[in-house]
Protein backbone atom coordinates (compact mmCIF):
# COMPACT_ATOMS: atom_id res chain seq x y z
CA UNK A 1 0.00 0.00 0.00
CA UNK A 2 2.37 2.65 -1.24
CA UNK A 3 1.12 6.18 -1.58
CA UNK A 4 2.68 7.61 -4.71
CA UNK A 5 2.21 9.60 -7.91
CA UNK A 6 -0.65 7.31 -8.99
CA UNK A 7 -2.88 9.35 -6.73
CA UNK A 8 -2.10 12.54 -8.62
CA UNK A 9 -2.41 10.79 -11.96
CA UNK A 10 -5.82 9.51 -10.94
CA UNK A 11 -6.87 12.98 -9.79
CA UNK A 12 -5.83 14.47 -13.14
CA UNK A 13 -7.67 11.74 -15.06
CA UNK A 14 -10.71 12.29 -12.82
CA UNK A 15 -10.65 16.02 -13.51
CA UNK A 16 -10.40 15.54 -17.27
CA UNK A 17 -13.18 12.93 -17.32
CA UNK A 18 -15.51 15.11 -15.27
CA UNK A 19 -14.90 18.11 -17.52
CA UNK A 20 -15.50 15.98 -20.62
CA UNK A 21 -18.67 14.54 -19.13
CA UNK A 22 -19.86 18.01 -18.15
CA UNK A 23 -19.21 19.49 -21.58
CA UNK A 24 -19.99 16.71 -24.06
CA UNK A 25 -22.08 14.03 -22.39
CA UNK A 26 -24.44 15.57 -19.88
CA UNK A 27 -25.88 18.53 -21.84
CA UNK A 28 -26.97 16.66 -25.01
CA UNK A 29 -28.61 13.88 -23.04
CA UNK A 30 -30.37 16.27 -20.69
CA UNK A 31 -31.46 18.39 -23.66
CA UNK A 32 -32.92 15.31 -25.38
CA UNK A 33 -34.67 14.28 -22.17
CA UNK A 34 -36.15 17.71 -21.57
CA UNK A 35 -37.21 18.04 -25.18
CA UNK A 36 -38.97 14.70 -25.01
CA UNK A 37 -40.66 15.72 -21.78
CA UNK A 38 -41.88 18.88 -23.46
CA UNK A 39 -43.07 16.92 -26.49
CA UNK A 40 -45.02 14.53 -24.31
CA UNK A 41 -46.52 17.38 -22.31
CA UNK A 42 -47.48 19.17 -25.52
CA UNK A 43 -48.95 15.97 -26.93
CA UNK A 44 -51.04 15.41 -23.82
CA UNK A 45 -52.25 19.01 -23.88
CA UNK A 46 -53.11 18.69 -27.56
CA UNK A 47 -55.07 15.50 -26.95
CA UNK A 48 -56.95 17.18 -24.11
CA UNK A 49 -57.75 20.07 -26.38
CA UNK A 50 -58.84 17.72 -29.15
CA UNK A 51 -61.13 15.84 -26.78
CA UNK A 52 -62.70 19.12 -25.69
CA UNK A 53 -63.07 20.24 -29.29
CA UNK A 54 -64.71 16.93 -30.16
CA UNK A 55 -67.19 17.33 -27.34
CA UNK A 56 -68.03 20.83 -28.47
CA UNK A 57 -68.41 19.71 -32.06
CA UNK A 58 -70.68 16.88 -31.03
CA UNK A 59 -72.84 19.24 -29.03
CA UNK A 60 -72.98 21.63 -31.93
CA UNK A 61 -73.85 18.95 -34.44
CA UNK A 62 -76.61 17.64 -32.19
CA UNK A 63 -77.99 21.15 -31.89
CA UNK A 64 -77.88 21.66 -35.63
CA UNK A 65 -79.51 18.33 -36.22
CA UNK A 66 -82.33 19.29 -33.91
CA UNK A 67 -82.78 22.61 -35.68
CA UNK A 68 -82.72 20.95 -39.08
CA UNK A 69 -85.36 18.47 -37.97
CA UNK A 70 -87.57 21.28 -36.75
CA UNK A 71 -87.07 23.16 -39.96
CA UNK A 72 -87.83 20.08 -42.00
CA UNK A 73 -90.97 19.42 -40.00
CA UNK A 74 -92.07 23.02 -40.60
CA UNK A 75 -91.38 22.70 -44.30
CA UNK A 76 -93.33 19.48 -44.59
CA UNK A 77 -96.29 20.98 -42.81
CA UNK A 78 -96.18 23.99 -45.04
CA UNK A 79 -95.93 21.79 -48.11
CA UNK A 80 -98.85 19.70 -46.97
CA UNK A 81 -100.92 22.79 -46.46
CA UNK A 82 -99.91 24.10 -49.81
CA UNK A 83 -100.66 20.80 -51.46
CA UNK A 84 -104.09 20.74 -49.91
CA UNK A 85 -104.64 24.24 -51.14
CA UNK A 86 -103.51 23.30 -54.62
CA UNK A 87 -105.73 20.24 -54.64
CA UNK A 88 -108.65 22.35 -53.51
CA UNK A 89 -107.96 24.98 -56.13
CA UNK A 90 -107.61 22.45 -58.89
CA UNK A 91 -110.82 20.77 -57.79
CA UNK A 92 -112.54 24.13 -58.05
CA UNK A 93 -110.99 24.75 -61.44
CA UNK A 94 -112.02 21.37 -62.66
CA UNK A 95 -115.52 21.85 -61.41
CA UNK A 96 -115.76 25.24 -63.11
CA UNK A 97 -114.26 23.87 -66.30
CA UNK A 98 -116.68 20.99 -66.26
CA UNK A 99 -119.57 23.37 -65.73
CA UNK A 100 -118.31 25.50 -68.57
CA UNK A 101 -117.97 22.51 -70.85
CA UNK A 102 -121.42 21.33 -69.94
CA UNK A 103 -122.86 24.73 -70.61
CA UNK A 104 -121.01 24.99 -73.91
CA UNK A 105 -122.24 21.59 -74.90
CA UNK A 106 -125.74 22.54 -73.94
CA UNK A 107 -125.48 25.72 -75.99
CA UNK A 108 -124.18 23.77 -78.94
CA UNK A 109 -126.98 21.26 -78.63
CA UNK A 110 -129.50 24.07 -78.46
CA UNK A 111 -127.96 25.65 -81.52
CA UNK A 112 -128.07 22.44 -83.46
CA UNK A 113 -131.57 21.81 -82.43
CA UNK A 114 -132.49 25.27 -83.65
CA UNK A 115 -130.72 24.69 -86.91
CA UNK A 116 -132.43 21.37 -87.35
CA UNK A 117 -135.71 22.97 -86.53
CA UNK A 118 -135.11 25.73 -89.09
CA UNK A 119 -134.17 23.18 -91.74
CA UNK A 120 -137.18 21.10 -90.87
CA UNK A 121 -139.35 24.15 -90.99
CA UNK A 122 -138.09 25.05 -94.46
CA UNK A 123 -138.49 21.55 -95.70
CA UNK A 124 -141.91 21.10 -94.17
CA UNK A 125 -143.15 24.11 -96.07
CA UNK A 126 -141.95 22.55 -99.29
CA UNK A 127 -143.45 19.20 -98.35
CA UNK A 128 -146.68 20.79 -97.34
CA UNK A 129 -146.91 22.71 -100.56
CA UNK A 130 -146.09 19.60 -102.51
CA UNK A 131 -148.71 17.74 -100.52
CA UNK A 132 -151.27 20.45 -101.13
CA UNK A 133 -150.40 20.49 -104.79
CA UNK A 134 -150.95 16.86 -104.88
CA UNK A 135 -154.23 17.25 -103.10
CA UNK A 136 -155.50 20.11 -105.19
CA UNK A 137 -153.88 18.81 -108.27
CA UNK A 138 -153.56 22.31 -109.22
CA UNK A 139 -150.65 24.47 -109.25
CA UNK A 140 -150.51 26.69 -106.42
CA UNK A 141 -148.92 29.94 -106.81
CA UNK A 142 -146.16 29.67 -104.39
CA UNK A 143 -145.65 33.34 -104.11
CA UNK A 144 -149.38 33.85 -103.34
CA UNK A 145 -149.46 31.28 -100.68
CA UNK A 146 -146.06 31.73 -99.29
CA UNK A 147 -147.22 33.99 -96.48
CA UNK A 148 -149.74 31.48 -95.34
CA UNK A 149 -147.25 28.70 -95.52
CA UNK A 150 -144.74 30.54 -93.48
CA UNK A 151 -147.37 31.11 -90.81
CA UNK A 152 -147.98 27.41 -90.85
CA UNK A 153 -144.33 26.66 -90.57
CA UNK A 154 -144.03 29.06 -87.64
CA UNK A 155 -146.67 27.16 -85.85
CA UNK A 156 -144.68 24.00 -86.09
Amino acid sequence: MNINLTMIGQAIAFFIFVVFCMKYVWPPIMAALQERQKKIADGLAASDRAARDLELAQEKSAQELREAKQQAAGLIEQANKRAAQIVEASKDDARKEGQKLIEQAKAEIEQERNQAREALRAEIAVIAVAGAEKILETSVDASKHNEMLEKLAAEL
Binding site: N2, I3, N4, L5, G9, A13, F17, C21, V25
Partner: peptide, 26 residues
Protein backbone atom coordinates in the same frame (compact mmCIF):
# COMPACT_ATOMS: atom_id res chain seq x y z
CA UNK B 1 10.68 3.92 -5.05
CA UNK B 2 8.73 5.98 -2.53
CA UNK B 3 6.45 8.69 -3.77
CA UNK B 4 8.02 9.00 -7.22
CA UNK B 5 6.37 5.95 -8.68
CA UNK B 6 3.36 5.21 -10.79
CA UNK B 7 1.12 2.18 -10.56
CA UNK B 8 0.95 1.63 -14.28
CA UNK B 9 -1.67 -1.10 -14.04
CA UNK B 10 -4.08 0.82 -11.76
CA UNK B 11 -3.78 3.99 -13.74
CA UNK B 12 -3.97 2.20 -17.08
CA UNK B 13 -7.09 0.25 -16.19
CA UNK B 14 -8.68 3.25 -14.52
CA UNK B 15 -8.12 5.50 -17.52
CA UNK B 16 -9.13 2.76 -19.93
CA UNK B 17 -12.38 2.09 -18.08
CA UNK B 18 -13.05 5.81 -17.78
CA UNK B 19 -12.63 6.07 -21.53
CA UNK B 20 -15.03 3.16 -22.04
CA UNK B 21 -17.60 5.03 -19.98
CA UNK B 22 -17.03 8.34 -21.74
CA UNK B 23 -17.00 6.86 -25.25
CA UNK B 24 -20.19 4.87 -24.73
CA UNK B 25 -21.97 7.85 -23.20
CA UNK B 26 -20.57 10.23 -25.80
Amino acid sequence: MGFWALHVDSLGWAVGLGLVFLIVFR
